[in-house]
Design a protein around this nucleic acid. Structure first.
Lengths: 119, 119
DNA sequence: GTAAAACTTGACACCAGTGTCAGAATCAAG
DNA sequence: CTTGATTCTGACACTGGTGTCAAGTTTTAC
C-alpha cells in the first residue's frame, strides 16, 4: 500500500511516517517513480511505534528495540544485547512510575469531577 | 521555606517553581527583600502539579483544576463548573487511553527483555 | 493525452516545559 | 561590616515529534 492509505489506516500523518523512515524505524520499497510502497505488516509496526513514542521512548531507542520484537508475522530478527536489556529495563521502570503517576492524576480528576457532580 | 528548600524537597528545579508561579499554579509570600517564602503545604501542591504535568495536562488546565482540589489541609476553594467538568472528563479519558498504551508498551519491553534473558 | 489526485523532498515553525547563564540584590552568619 | 550562599529577573536555547507550505514529479482515471 502507499503512504496515504497507511496514514489513513493507522491514524498517523504522512509527515510522521516519512519521519519514521528517516529515523530508521520503518522501511519501504519504492515504485520505479520513487513512491513508497508498504507491506501489509507496516500497519502493525506503525501502531507499535506510536505506542512506544507515547510511552516516552525516543526514536533511537525504538530503532534498537524494533528488530528484537516479535512481529505479528514471525520471529524477532535480533536479540537484545545486555547493554540494550539494561536500557530497556530502565525504560520499563520509568514506564511503571509513569503509570503510577497517571493513576494518581486520574484519581485526582475523579475526585474533582465527583465533587462537582454532587458527591 | 524558601525556594531552594522547596526545590530540594520536591525534586523540582527552582526554574520550574518560578515558572509555576508565573503560570498561576503556585503562590508565595515575599520577604521584604523580595524573596519567595512558601508555606509547608507548598510541598504537596508542587508534587500534585508535577503529577498533573506528567499526565499531560497543560498549565492552564491545571490552573483551573487546582482550586477545585481538596488540599491536604482542607476543603476545595471552588467547585468545578460544568464546562470544566466536561474538560476534565475528556482529560480523564485521555489518561485512560494513555495508561492502556503504556501497559502495552511495557508488555512489549518485557517480551524483548525476557527473550534476551533466555525465555 | 490530459487533468486531478497522490506523492516526492526540503525547509521553516511550533509547542511548552525546562536548562542555563548573567548581573544584581538579599539574606544569614561570623 | 564583610563575606559567602542564596535568590532575584530576564533572556536565550533546546528538545523532538509534528504541522504546514512550496515546487516539482508520479500515478491514476477518464
Amino acid at each position: 500500500m502507499r503512504i496515504g492509505e497507511l496514514a489513513r489506516r493507522t491514524g498517523v500523518s504522512e509527515r510522521s511516517l516519512r519521519y519514521y523512515e528517516k529515523q530508521g524505524l520503518l522501511v519501504a520499497e519504492r515504485t520505479p517513480g520513487g513512491h513508497r510502497e508498504y507491506p501489509e505488516a507496516a500497519v502493525d509496526r506503525v501502531v507499535r511505534i506510536q505506542e512506544l513514542f507515547a510511552a516516552g521512548l525516543c526514536s533511537s531507542k525504538i530503532a534498537q528495540l524494533l528488530p528484537c520484537m516479535r512481529d505479528a508475522d514471525g520471529r524477532p530478527s535480533a536479540i537484545a544485547t545486555p547493554r540494550l536489556v539494561a536500557d530497556l529495563s530502565a525504560e520499563r521502570e520509568r514506564i511503571d512510575r509513569m503509570i503510577a503517576d497517571l493513576v494518581r492524576s486520574r484519581e485526582t480528576l475523579d475526585e474533582v469531577i465527583d465533587t462537582a457532580r454532587g458527591r
